[in-house]
């Protein structure tokens, strides 16, 4: 008796073969594609996610002030800015773990509420936190399946774990994502930083059929050069399957090579939106240091 997954196997596109044809692969947007924020594509469709007038204060600290950002379907959007610029807070608002004081979100043009993390998850928004939220004392498969275990015979928490099936599916998932981890039986605590990051990414995209948006807070922050390159490669791989990805990073060159567009935040405001293909590291840094809200496109 599979209690946890009414749709059965098909609910896990990463395990089956349903994933690839979901969306055409998107090229990096060309320089001619104006990086405006109220973006309309040629066929008139609206952005996947529109963030409008989002503000949030913590006591006297104004973490976010009337931020407008668009996320297009299938794009990688970079967010850069100094420490305390409000990047993480913005992501947590989208992921439903922080409530905004003002502002709203629309998805495919429809107003949506992300009052809780569960509500956001139902909309297809998954977030990978800065600290990854992994269980070091559990193995790779257990981490990927945590809270969504395959069980049988008894309902709810009393259910018996289908360990072999979960190991098999976890291994298939890792293979499909081209993640090489010796065994799904290793405790996550012994993995390298990059492997941990990849397990967290695999878990985030593994289950819901409708994962549309993946939010990543500094996925390469603690990684060395080679390891962060492998993680970036995985992010590209995920995007090629049609997900929209928002990625926070302090490494400007990395963001420029990975993202389609880059949003620059400063003191809680969006000061610029740059086209990653046509901008330069200098331009980015300049906006981070000297950007003014309202002055940019």
């Amino acid at each position: 008796m599979a209690v946890s997954h009414p749709d059965g196997l098909s609910a896990r596109p990463w395990v089956g073969e349903t994933l690839l044809p979901r969306l055409p692969r998107l090229r990096k947007s060309s320089a001619a594609d104006a990086p405006a924020d109220h973006w309309q594509s040629a066929d008139g469709s609206r952005p996947l996610l529109e963030i409008r007038g989002v503000s949030r204060s913590f006591g006297h600290v104004r973490a976010l002030h009337e931020v407008d950002i668009d996320l297009r379907e299938g794009e990688i959007l970079g967010i850069v800015g100094d420490n305390g610029a409000g990047k993480s807070t913005l992501m947590k608002i989208i992921a439903g773990t922080v409530r905004p004081d003002a502002g709203h979100l629309t998805m495919n043009g429809e107003p949506v509420s992300v009052a809780t993390a569960l509500a956001a998850r139902r909309l297809g928004i998954e977030m990978i936190y800065q600290d990854l939220a992994l269980f070091d004392n559990l193995d790779v498969a257990a981490n990927i399946f945590i809270g969504r275990e395959h069980t049988r015979w008894l309902p709810l928490l009393l259910g018996f774990l289908e360990k072999r099936r979960m190991h098999k599916e976890a291994a298939e998932l890792l293979k499909r994502l081209n993640i090489q981890i010796g065994s799904t039986r290793q405790p996550v605590g012994v993995l390298s930083g990059g492997q941990r990051q990849m397990v967290a990414i695999a878990r985030a995209v593994a289950f819901e059929k409708n994962v549309k948006v993946l939010l990543m807070d500094e996925p390469s922050a603690a990684l060395g050069a080679t390891e962060s390159e492998t993680v970036l490669e995985l992010i590209r791989e995920i995007r090629s399957h049609g997900l929209s990805i928002v990625i926070i990073s302090h490494r400007i060159p990395e963001v420029l090579s990975l993202a389609d567009r880059v949003v620059v935040m400063k003191r809680g405001e969006r000061v610029a939106t740059l086209d990653a293909g046509s901008t330069t590291v200098e331009e980015c840094v300049n906006q981070i240091v000297a950007g003014e809200a309202g002055a940019a496109a």
Binding site: N137, L138, I146, G159
Partner: peptide, 22 residues
């Protein structure tokens, strides 16, 4: 062998992550 046992290790190992896993 049960989900409860697995979750016991999870809740003890990283309560914050357990919360994020709903």
């Amino acid at each position: 062998t049960t989900k409860a046992g697995r979750h016991l290790f999870a809740v003890g190992g990283n309560p914050e992550a357990a919360r994020q896993a709903a």
